[in-house]
């Protein structure tokens, strides 16, 4: 299938640093994920108190999407036909373990609904959709490794079948203190001077955070 789509923006969050379209925009040494994510929230002046109710996977996915979409989504008053297709390795296991602890002891058995709701990996897509008014296609997948080829074809299919105008693709992995988010926006036209062709090579470069630095 020959189909020319473009990657117009990206956001990578790893090792306590944020990279927007390849450029290092924030770094915080010696912090755990909880401290780091809060620092990113403050630094980029996100005003969204619900952020603090999210589990760590949702915080990670939310921040990476938010920083990228800031430039794209002008208003959440209007609808934005941006599909969200994410994948990771550990599903919601980080929160699953936390929830399991709440039901492990017969004498201290207080399952929390606010924790339970995050024991599904697609909740992070829900959070992003609510914030940006994305009444659009969405799916969450689990793979052992970043599925560059699968992601590319799935996004192309959504654009070609006119089920979405743009597709926010991403790898949003978090388990305990190991995390990494790589999200990027795919669209039909080359919308800015950074735009790169949407193909396996560029996606792989993006995943290793070398696309815009080569």
């Amino acid at each position: 299938m020959e189909f020319n789509n473009y990657i117009s923006e990206s956001c990578v969050i790893e090792d306590n640093a944020v990279f927007l379209s390849g450029e290092n925009s924030f770094i915080l040494d010696d912090a755990n994920f909880s401290e780091f994510s809060k620092a990113v929230y403050k630094k980029f002046e996100i005003e969204y108190p619900k952020f603090f109710k999210m589990d760590n996977l949702s915080k990670l996915a939310f921040l990476s999407a938010e920083l990228l979409l800031k430039e794209v989504v002008q208003s959440n008053e209007q609808e934005n036909d941006i599909a969200v297709v994410f994948a990771n390795r550990s599903s919601s296991l980080d929160t699953d373990v936390k929830y399991q602890e709440s039901i492990a002891s017969k004498d201290n058995y207080f399952p929390s609904p606010a924790v339970f709701v995050y024991t599904l990996p697609n909740i992070c897509i829900g959070e992003i959709s609510i914030k940006n008014n994305l009444k659009s296609e969405n799916a969450f997948f689990v793979f052992e490794e970043f599925p560059a080829e699968f992601m590319m074809h799935y996004a192309n299919n959504l654009l070609e079948s006119e089920k979405a105008e743009k597709v926010l693709c991403g790898w949003t992995e978090l388990y305990k203190e190991n995390y990494r988010a790589v999200v990027y926006l795919v669209e039909k036209t080359s919308s800015n001077s950074f735009s790169k062709e949407h193909n396996i090579e560029t996606i792989k470069q993006l995943y290793t955070n070398t696309l815009w630095t080569l």
């Binding site: 108190p49 399952p111 929390s112 609904p113």
Partner: peptide
């Protein structure tokens, strides 16, 4: 305070616990 339905469920757990 802008609490929602999940918060209400969480308050029920708080009463119990």
């Amino acid at each position: 305070l802008g609490l929602d339905s999940i918060d209400a469920l969480e308050l029920i757990v708080l009463l119990d616990k």
